[in-house]
């Protein structure tokens, strides 16, 4: 039961974009090898990421009739 609730809560968070930053960090870690040589950009801060995410979200047609 509690596992189900947890899963449901996870879905709600994902659907609303509440965990967007966590997912971004995960994606970042998976795709950038921080220990590798050469310059690697640091991940965005939560605030900066959210700004970009929100602005991007509203550039196309997002709502219907």
């Amino acid at each position: 039961m509690s596992r189900l609730l947890k899963k449901f809560w996870g879905r709600v968070r994902q659907l609303s974009g509440d965990d967007a930053y966590e997912r971004y960090l995960q994606h970042y870690m998976a795709h950038h090898d921080l220990k590798a040589e050469g310059e690697v950009e640091a991940p965005l801060t939560k605030e900066a990421f959210f700004k970009e995410w929100q602005d991007k979200k509203w550039t196309g047609i997002k709502r219907c009739c």
Binding site: V12, R13, S16, G17, D18, A20, Y21, K46, E47, F49, F50, K51, Q54
Partner: peptide
């Protein structure tokens, strides 16, 4: 609230 007080806390703000 979402932008400046608690950035990214979408559910809380909603």
């Amino acid at each position: 609230y979402m932008r400046h007080i608690r950035p990214g806390e979408v559910l809380e703000a909603s």
